[in-house]
Design a protein around this nucleic acid. Structure first.
Length: 421
DNA sequence: TCTGGGGTCCTAGGACCC
DNA sequence: TCTGGGGTCCTAGGACCC
């Protein structure tokens, strides 16, 4: 089995460019929720030295001096473009692991093109671009970690031109040598720091380190990374998505929350979103956690954060049941005289709803509430989020996240379709 | 002034049991 | 005063990923 890692280039920026070609060739960045941090950069923005993940105010000087275009994130658009890319990838392999919104591993076991992987990669790149407008890079190798590394070089090297096949390649050691150890998939800041302290600063030196030493210092995960660099598959390929284990909806607030009623409204909103996600995935939750927090960066103001976990008597996907428990949970941890900056809801103990046939006590009511939810979901997806909602979320949303430069939801919202003047 | 959101896995240590 | 040994399960926190 060989693996191809297909990664969309500067994904969020590329999505924006599909619908606004004026953004081509100029520095563009996309901000996180609440317009907080830089989460995507065009190559031009990268070259200006704008770092990934920094709060935008730290880059303000560069932005002003170079007329960098700054956009709020538009997750409805990116999610839909992602779906299109993943669909187009199915043509190239029947084994696709969707790894993230902008990345997928392809298993090439029975690829008819196994003899000529580089042209396979180029064809794929061309086809995805033609079908979706999104530029991708392709890395091919014997393990997922090596495919990731091939992809890293494919992006970085002008000669590779976005596609690199490292399988059976005489250039493999050279590729490993020119890859800094912190760029290896699975080696983060802490591990890189430790490795560098032992003079292991490239992927090649890491690959040739002692496996037992690595396991002692970086746990079993580090050993797996090492083996993968040696060409021994040690990280599972998941062609069918496993049932997820948790689901979170949380937000930072655009303005601080100080009243319980506003917090109930916000958490009610998060629970509503979480319930929709549950039903969309055909899941039910048996454990619900609510958390609240003040602004951890504002060290001079009083700090408070807390969470509470509720075990539900039976798994549910009903928004009203989740609300009942979630709202009393938030009341139990809410303290007066703090300025809250963030809150959220996490659902765990997830099971497939299809496996839950009957309830012992309130079966009839449960089935009615499921019908209701189905209808509400349908109405909201047709006519807009929260057309139909529970009263608790209605309070004026003073806390709503900032999103001042969001592009239209061209592909998912009737009111925001692209128009040609 | 301004600092995202959503996941997974691993380990150590405590609780508990026999 | 002396204070076993071994197993399982759970959880919090850390590290990593995008």
């Amino acid at each position: 089995m060989l693996y191809a890692l297909v990664d969309c280039n500067n994904f969020y920026v590329s999505c924006e460019r599909v619908f606004d070609p004026r953004l081509l060739g100029i520095p563009v960045i996309v901000l996180s929720n609440n317009d907080g941090c830089v989460v995507a950069r065009s190559n031009e923005a990268k070259r200006l030295g704008i770092k990934m993940g920094i709060p935008v105010f730290q880059a303000q000087r560069i932005i002003d001096a170079n007329q960098v275009r700054v956009l709020s994130s538009n997750y409805a658009l990116y999610g839909d473009m992602s779906r299109r890319v993943m669909l187009a990838l199915q043509e190239f392999s029947s084994h696709v692991e969707i790894y993230s919104v902008d990345e997928a591993f392809l298993g090439l076991e029975d690829s008819p093109r196994a003899g000529d992987l580089e042209s396979f990669g180029r064809e794929l790149k061309t086809s995805i671009y033609r079908q979706t407008g999104i530029p991708v890079s392709v890395g091919i190798a014997e393990t997922k970690t090596l495919a990731k590394l091939a992809n890293y070089i494919a992006k970085e090297s002008a000669r590779a031109g976005g596609v690199l096949d490292l399988s059976n390649s005489p250039h493999r050691d050279v590729a490993l040598e020119r890859t800094p150890v912190e760029e290896v998939w699975g080696i983060g800041r802490q591990s890189a720091k430790l490795l560098k302290a032992h003079h292991i600063d490239t992927a090649l030196k890491f690959r040739d380190s002692d496996a037992d030493w690595v396991e002692r210092h970086l746990t079993i995960s580090g050993r797996h990374v090492l083996q993968e660099l040696r060409g021994i598959p040690s990280i599972k390929f998941l062609a069918t998505a496993p049932v997820r284990k948790s689901l979170t909806v949380s937000r930072s607030f655009g303005t601080k929350i100080e009243e319980l009623e506003d917090m109930r409204s916000a958490v009610g909103q998060f629970i509503t979103r979480a319930g929709e996600k549950l039903r969309r995935h055909g899941l039910s939750a048996s454990i619900l956690t609510v958390f609240v927090a003040t602004n951890r960066f504002a060290k001079e103001t009083p700090q408070y954060s807390n969470s509470v976990t509720v075990e539900l008597s039976t798994p549910t996907d009903s928004t009203s049941e989740l609300l009942k428990h979630g709202l009393s949970a938030v009341e139990s941890i809410f303290r007066e005289h703090y300025s809250y900056k963030k809150a959220g809801v996490t659902l765990t103990g997830l099971v497939l709803s299809a496996g839950l046939n009957n309830r012992l006590f309130d079966d009839a009511q449960w089935k009615r509430s499921q019908e209701l939810a189905k209808t509400v979901d349908r109405l909201n997806s047709l006519f807009g989020q929260d057309l139909v909602h529970f009263g608790v979320v209605r309070r004026r949303k003073r806390w709503i996240s900032k999103s001042e430069q969001r592009s239209p939801r061209y592909t998912t919202c009737w009111d925001e379709l692209m128009t040609v003047p």
